[in-house]
Design a protein around this nucleic acid. Structure first.
Lengths: 192, 192
DNA sequence: AGAAGGTGTTGATTATTCTAAACGGTATCC
DNA sequence: GGATACCGTTTAGAATAATCAACACCTTCT
């Protein structure tokens, strides 16, 4: 009706959505247009909300990403909010004086994965009583050295070294060295 | 490109999908068109797959149902298959000579709900050892009378009477009367 | 500075979709 | 039997979307 579709939220939403998806996949309008077999102009118009694409052309474009129509309309953009967390924003998990665990992501949210930024000061030890819990965990040493014990294996890991094991296997982390050690770890499902 | 979009599955799929949705909601093309503020012709063309509607018009049409674009593209039409089950098709769950449990739906399919058509002949009893399991259950007596025990409460229910309780509470069903008793029950999540 | 190659955006034309109004078919009512 | 009231379908023309080609802008390179 109107020349300017101001009051129509869905068009703009589709455009914004497409732009978001395209950017998430690291594509330019032209690159996506080439892959999809449409013109870059069409994508520009759609993203600006100046036209409402037909299902067929939207599908054609999404095929170039690639992404299904169902995905396109279903994926919750808000859910991918808070992708970045500043170091200061990480939630501290008290453990022991010499150990600091700082969690990536919101504490309360239901998640399939948990990531921790761990700091082991000299002399830190998760305890003689080995840790055991469900899931699997992995980590990479960022700075300093860490003595990792998993089952009957024990290794001193330096910066860049990593571990991966099933958390049911008794494990322990120690820093018997005199320099501070930082580790980035992840476990799934979350067990803290 | 072609006048006849034979090789394009998606358009036809959208048309068929729309037709299905419209029919499921018991609407005629004209009625839906009236609600959506489009012409019945447009709906006809779309359903035949002769055009690929724009997002804006598809949304307008779906608003008339009403249904979101996400729903429209997500809902699995095949999943709503086998909606009706003849009495003879209900799967019998052997229990006791005087008790018959006949399940609605396919035994193997993952479901959030289970419905049973239960028959308690005179003297039937689910057992002195009370039943306990996860979930919640409800039922309505269709015929005869049933003595229902839930925790420390006990009631004789007649036709039309019903119950609802958390299945963790010990429960028992008995028919000490001399007429046959039929009950329709449901429990979620399925526990048989 | 200027050329080259990238980005997204914009008119004029072509192609497609939507509307409006008709058509044929079927069931119901009188 | 004919009028009425639905149904879905179809066609000509108005409205909208997509293309093509140019445009303005920004980096990078020489």
């Amino acid at each position: 009706m109107d020349a300017e579709p101001l009051g129509v939220p869905e068009e703009a939403a589709v455009g914004a959505r497409l732009k978001r998806m395209r950017q998430v996949f690291g594509l330019t309008q032209r690159e996506l247009a080439r892959r999809a077999g449409v013109t870059n102009g069409a994508i520009s118009l759609i993203e600006q909300g100046r036209v409402s694409p037909s299902i067929s052309s939207l599908k054609k474009i999404l095929d170039g990403i690639p992404m299904s129509l169902a995905e396109f309309f279903t994926i919750d953009l808000a859910a991918s909010e808070d992708v970045f967390f500043r170091a200061d924003d990480l939630t501290e998990i008290a453990f022991e004086a010499r150990i600091s665990f700082r969690m990536v992501g919101h504490p309360l949210k239901e998640r399939a994965l948990q990531m921790l930024h761990e700091t082991y000061r000299s002399g830190a030890d998760t305890g003689e009583a080995m840790l055991r819990h469900d899931g699997e965990e992995a980590g990479i040493v960022v700075r300093g050295r860490l003595l990792v014990t998993v089952g009957d294996q024990e290794q001193a890991l330096g910066a860049g070294d990593a571990y991966y094991f099933k958390s049911r296997i008794p494990h322990r982390f120690r820093n018997p060295f005199d320099e501070l050690c930082e580790v980035i770890s992840a476990n799934s499902p979350p067990s803290f």
